[in-house]
Write a protein that binds this DNA or RNA. Structure first.
Lengths: 144, 144
DNA sequence: GCTTGACTTGGAGTGCGCTCGAAGTCCCAG
DNA sequence: CTGGGACTTCGAGCGCACTCCAAGTCAAGC
């Protein structure tokens, strides 16, 4: 498979594939007599997995560590596992944070919905000052 | 409250606060006779909310739209609600994707764990070629 | 009155992850 | 044999979101 086809199949651009190869995320593929890259389909699985690492927010630097271990092959499994486990914790934390922020978003949207559907001038009025929040009775900045 | 204190309280740097003001995320604060910014505590709530938008992946450009409506004040509630509702859908989608990728991660980690704890040379051997995947019996690239 | 440190502005620099362009080579259909 | 399209390399450019620097002002404590 040449780069154009791999691009179509993987969803990456040919530019990006070459870029990934340059930085070491993708292994050097075989080249045919004209110097054209010739990929094995198995690369698609690896690209898919890279996409998942990326989608879960792993920085390229970390993917690079993982990719290097993968290149090395046997004997690096434990290290790869550790990388993945640490990353999994990051993902779990993000998930938790996202859920929390989502609920804040829900609350806020519900507030807008209530204020607007009621055409409530008082509540709508409040929306500029500090944006709705229920705990608005904050103390002023005190001299420490 | 001056910028340094706001920085400490909000967790943003003074640089970032000025930057946010420049681009329009934060309203122009009052300035004292020396030209120093003087913030009301209520800004902290807004910064907190901005942080939540950011944490949920809203691009600055979109925050800007929201911030501009908030500045305008009354009469922009419906638009703000729409922005938030659309964003909420993005967040839900991210959450779903993250959960899915997390489970892939779990599977992969479990695979490493099994292969390593068994010291299984066959399975470990497989980990370089295409990284463990169960569905390894892929057809070769066919001529379309 | 002098030092220290927090503040001001404008603009330049950074890090990440691509993304694109230029110039050239190669293969194949018509 | 010619035109078109896919490929090659190298290096520059981009968009985002900061982050920092330089040069200057100002207020308070010693």
């Amino acid at each position: 498979m040449k780069i154009g086809k791999l691009a179509r199949r993987s969803g990456l651009s040919a530019h990006t594939i070459r870029y990934y190869e340059r930085i070491g995320l993708l292994p050097q593929p075989d080249k045919n007599t004209s110097g054209h890259r010739d990929y094995d389909v198995s690369i698609l699985k690896w690209i898919d997995f890279l996409g998942r690492l990326k989608a879960t927010g792993m920085p390229v630097r970390e993917m690079l560590r993982y990719a290097a271990l993968r290149e090395t092959g046997d004997g690096t499994e434990a290290e790869r596992q550790v990388i993945l486990e640490i990353h999994r914790e990051h993902v779990r934390a993000r998930l938790a944070g996202l859920r929390q922020n989502l609920s804040v978003l829900d609350t806020k949207i519900a507030f807008y919905a209530a204020a607007i559907s009621a055409g409530d001038p008082v509540k709508c009025k409040g929306t500029k000052e500090d944006d709705h929040d229920p705990e608005r009775d904050e103390q002023r900045d005190r001299p420490l």
